[in-house]
């Protein structure tokens, strides 16, 4: 079968090592580090390329779809693809890191904000609108400058700082004219004046493994947009807030974006597919190893 790879392991034997699947779109330094850490631990590990997956929805278990792992770690950058894979695995009783529900909440910024607000976590005021005119009213409600973000998407793409109603119209019209319907779900957030940095806290299980400052001259302080990473001490405040944010969305492995406001720390969002390349450059902590250990714990606990 063209394009299919036998991703699954050999038939199970009681003495065989835990079998870890790593769902990927392609291998970044993070995934290479994870695969290496798993092999170091004697784990039977295999990358699963999303482009090769064929999900047999009629099947009652995972082997038919070559996904017969003890646990699957989601490191896929294609959010829509990983969403379906995790759902199917949930049905087949294969534990995943993160869970399908957590990933669904984090892959949509509006869902993410709603979950944070529901849990009483400090987060910038956010409004959602579906039409250019109502979105301009939403910008006015949060005040200018306002921030427009796509509900799906990552790496700091398509973030817009909006300084007035005419500017809002220019940008909103582009979203409507050029984008798919997802881009006409207008996510409008208050702009928070912050230092030229934010904080990425990397949560694994019940702890913040490490944190880094991401500094940029541009108001978008995203590593993918060229922000520089520097070590950030994990204070009790950072740890507590990052863990609460993860609990709010049910994430066990996440990069939590925090900002320092005049009123203290606030959570921007929780990223279940958090990259940690920048973090790796600022800490000696073995992040990849900790992720593999958390995956092993997930395998032991099973589907929750």
């Amino acid at each position: 079968m063209t394009g299919m790879k036998p991703n699954g392991p050999t038939p199970r034997q009681s003495s065989r090592p835990v079998c870890l699947g790593v769902l990927v779109s392609y291998l970044r330094p993070e995934e290479k580090a994870i695969l290496a850490a798993a092999r170091d631990r004697g784990i039977d590990v295999a990358p699963v390329f999303d482009r090769d997956v064929v999900l047999d929805l009629a099947a009652s278990d995972a082997p038919t779809s070559n996904l017969d792992f003890d646990v699957l770690l989601d490191r896929c950058v294609a959010h829509s693809r990983s969403g379906y894979v995790l759902r199917a695995l949930q049905r087949w009783g294969i534990p995943t890191l993160n869970s399908a529900d957590a990933v669904r909440l984090c892959d949509d910024k509006a869902e993410n904000s709603l979950a944070l607000e529901s849990a009483g976590i400090p987060t910038p005021r956010t409004l959602v609108a579906f039409d250019v005119e109502s979105a301009i009213r939403a910008c006015e409600a949060v005040g200018y400058p306002a921030v427009l973000k796509p509900v799906t998407g990552s790496w700091g793409r398509l973030l817009a700082r909006v300084n007035g109603p005419e500017q809002a119209r220019s940008i909103l019209e582009q979203k409507k004219e050029l984008g798919s319907f997802h881009h006409a779900i207008f996510y409008v957030q208050e702009y928070i004046a912050k230092p030229d940095r934010d904080i990425r806290a990397y949560v694994i299980g019940d702890r913040v493994l490490a944190a880094s400052y991401r500094t940029a001259k541009h108001w978008v302080t995203n590593a993918a947009r060229g922000a520089e990473s520097a070590p950030c001490p994990v204070t009790p405040d950072i740890e507590a807030l990052a863990l609460r944010a993860c609990a709010a969305v049910g994430a066990r492995l996440a990069g939590v974006d925090l900002i320092e406001t005049q009123d203290g720390l606030a959570v921007i969002e929780v990223n279940t597919g958090g990259e940690f390349k920048g973090l790796m450059s600022t800490t000696d902590v073995d992040i990849a190893g900790a992720i593999v250990d958390e995956a092993l714990d997930t395998a032991r606990l099973g589907v929750t």
């Binding site: 427009l148 909006v162 500017q167 940008i171």
Partner: peptide
């Protein structure tokens, strides 16, 4: 009108 709009 401004650099933020131009970038966006």
């Amino acid at each position: 009108p401004d650099i933020d709009t131009a970038e966006a």
